[in-house]
C-alpha cells in the first residue's frame, strides 16, 4: 500500500512544484515589498519626526500583537465589506508584506540606533545634511547589525507564508491538504511538504549564519 501511495505521490510531484512556485512567488513578492517598506518605516522610527515615530511604532505594535491568521482574515474577508475587494493571491501578498515590513522596521530601527552618537555628531559638524548622514555614515554601519536578523526574518517569512493556504492560495501547504485527501498517508504527504519548505529555508539559514559570522569578524577588525 505504502509503495502504491508513494508512486501516486511521485505522480503528483508537478502539482507540488506548482505549489512550491506559488509559495516562492508569495514569499518573494512580500520579501521585496516588505523590505522596502520596512526600511522606510525603520528610518522613520529612528528618525527625528516625533509624530512619524509614534505612528510607525503603533503600527508595529498592532501587527506584532495580533495573530497573522487573524490579519489575513481581516484583509481577505472583512475589507470587501468596506469596498476593498482582493483576490486570494494579492490579499496574501498584502498581508505578508504588512507582517514582514513591521518586523523589518524594528530590525532597521534598532540597527540605526545602535550606531554610536558620535558618528552623527562628526558628520553634522562637517556639514553633511541629515539624509547624507543617513546614506553615507549611518546606514552603511547599521547594515552590519541589520543584515543577519534581516535574512533570519526572510526564513520566518517563507514559513509564515504557509498560512496563506487558509484563504485558498494554492501554495505547498494547500497542495498538501488537497493531496492528502487523495493519498491518505499524512506523514508521507506532509513530509514532502516540509522537505520543500526546508529546501527553500536552509540556504537562507546558512546565509544568515554566514553573515552573522562575517559581520562580527569585520566589525572587530574595523
Amino acid at each position: 500500500m505504502w509503495s502504491f501511495y508513494f508512486n501516486e505521490l511521485m505522480r503528483s510531484l508537478p502539482f507540488f512544484l506548482k505549489g512550491l512556485w506559488m509559495t516562492v512567488a508569495v514569499a518573494g513578492l512580500s520579501l521585496i515589498f516588505g523590505t522596502i517598506i520596512g526600511f522606510f518605516g525603520g528610518i522613520m522610527r529612528a528618525g527625528r519626526n516625533k509624530p512619524a515615530r509614534i505612528i510607525v511604532g503603533a503600527w508595529v505594535d498592532l501587527i506584532r500583537g495580533t495573530p497573522f491568521l487573524v490579519q489575513i482574515f481581516i484583509i481577505f474577508f472583512i475589507l470587501p465589506g468596506i469596498g476593498i475587494e482582493l483576490e486570494a493571491f494579492p490579499a496574501a501578498v498584502v498581508a505578508l508584506t504588512n507582517l514582514t515590513a513591521s518586523f523589518i522596521c524594528e530590525i532597521v530601527a534598532s540597527g540605526i540606533l545602535a550606531v554610536p552618537k558620535g558618528q552623527r555628531e562628526a558628520a553634522t559638524a562637517s556639514g553633511l545634511s541629515y539624509y547624507e548622514q543617513l546614506r553615507f555614515i549611518v546606514l552603511p554601519q547599521a547594515m552590519r547589525s541589520i543584515l543577519p536578523p534581516l535574512v533570519g526574518q526572510y526564513v520566518l517569512l517563507v514559513k509564515d507564508s504557509s498560512i496563506v493556504s487558509a484563504i485558498g492560495v494554492v501554495d505547498i501547504t494547500r497542495v498538501g491538504w488537497l493531496t492528502v485527501q487523495r493519498i491518505p498517508e499524512g506523514l508521507m504527504v506532509f513530509g514532502l511538504v516540509g522537505l520543500l519548505y526546508f529546501a527553500v529555508c536552509y540556504p537562507l539559514i546558512n546565509l544568515s549564519g554566514y553573515l552573522e559570522r562575517r559581520m562580527t569578524v569585520v566589525s572587530t577588525k574595523l
Binding site: 554610536p116 558620535g118 558618528q119 555628531e121 558628520a123 554601519q141 574595523l222
Partner: peptide, 9 residues
C-alpha cells in the same frame, strides 16, 4: 572630538 569619531567603514 575626544573620541575621534572617525567613520569606521
Amino acid at each position: 572630538f575626544q573620541s575621534f569619531n572617525l567613520y569606521p567603514h
